[in-house]
């Protein structure tokens, strides 16, 4: 602008609105967000709402709650929640319990990257390949059983696939690396001089863990638990491939898939998906509430 307008601009309202928006932070660059936001709204928010609406309009008539009533009145269907919880909660706890001590050791390691790289492999390979490998490896004639038998630890092959154990193992193989990496990143966030300080004050390893590491890690462990739990709770391919999908490992995802794709009842399928999400939210809320009772804040020792 090289001239100062002597008369007020012709469109003062529009101009000031634009400026007001800019002052609030909405300028051209903020608008770059718009396509991505629209995309997520159309393909995530809308489907979620549509799914909810669909679940309240049962395909076979009945009241708007008919799908939910049907779900909770058939033990074969609502039992899938229990089955899934029985699988997902222990798997997540085991993964966390394994991750913490290993992460505490690995943080002092020089070749961390090699180990983390090795551990990313199962995450990359995904559950389907893991399942196929497990059928070979843990099968009655697979290497695992052969080794145990030739070591005379067992006389008969152990059944490790096509049952609950199979899904459990596959969830550990796929879930442990994920848990471990998250826990490792939280553990490395704890200033090592805090542990040294505790040691100098006479705290032994177990006391240092209980009084220093654990409280500082609590919030991170809760988040890790939640993320790992929701993954485990929505297990599908391994429950079908290395589990017993019609019985002991009939998880809720199978029930949802069965309703939507084998009975072509998208309304019921959406209802089950929403129940699935709801159970996840309850567990996550519960865990976050428990962890809120602990210290939340920076895990550094310096100026806070």
């Amino acid at each position: 602008m090289d001239t100062i307008p002597l008369i007020a601009p012709a469109t003062p309202d529009r101009d000031s609105l634009k400026r007001r928006l800019e002052r609030a932070g909405f300028d051209a660059i903020t608008l770059l967000l718009l396509p991505a936001v629209l995309f997520v709204v159309v393909l995530f928010v809308y489907p979620a709402l549509y799914g909810f609406w669909l679940s309240l309009h049962p395909m076979n008539g009945g009241g708007w709650l008919a799908n939910y009533i049907a779900f909770f009145s058939d033990p074969y269907v609502y039992g899938t929640i229990i089955t899934t919880l029985e699988l997902a909660v222990p798997v997540t706890l085991v993964n966390l319990a394994l991750s913490v001590p290993i992460a505490l050791r690995v943080r002092h390691m020089r070749h961390q990257r090699l180990l983390t790289t090795l551990l990313v492999i199962p995450v990359t390979l995904g559950t389907v390949l893991t399942a196929q490998g497990m059928l070979n490896y843990f099968g009655p004639l697979g290497w695992f059983n052969r080794v145990l038998m030739s070591l005379h630890l067992i006389h008969m092959p152990v059944r490790l696939v096509h049952n609950f154990t199979g899904v459990f193992l596959s969830q550990i193989i796929g879930g442990f690396p994920f848990c471990f990496m998250l826990v490792l990143s939280y553990v490395t966030g704890i200033d090592p001089s805090l542990e040294n300080a505790a040691a100098m004050l006479g705290a032994r390893a177990a006391q240092r863990f209980r009084h220093i590491i654990l409280p500082l890690l609590a919030a991170g462990l809760a988040i890790t638990f939640c993320l790992a739990f929701v993954q485990a709770f929505s297990v599908f391919p391994s429950a079908v491939l290395v589990g017993a999908p019609s019985g002991p490992t009939r998880v809720i995802a199978i029930a949802a898939f069965h309703a939507a794709y084998e009975e072509y009842d998208y309304s019921m399928g959406s209802a089950i998906a929403i129940i699935m999400g709801f159970v996840q939210i309850i567990v996550v809320a519960l865990v976050m509430w428990i962890s809120s009772l602990f210290y939340r804040g920076p895990a550094g020792g310096g100026k806070g």
Partner: peptide, 20 residues
Amino acid sequence: LKPEERGFGMVFQNYALFPH
């Protein structure tokens, strides 16, 4: 002896106060 067995006091450069 381990650090916890020596009974010395230490003041760290970044203080290392337990934040919780």
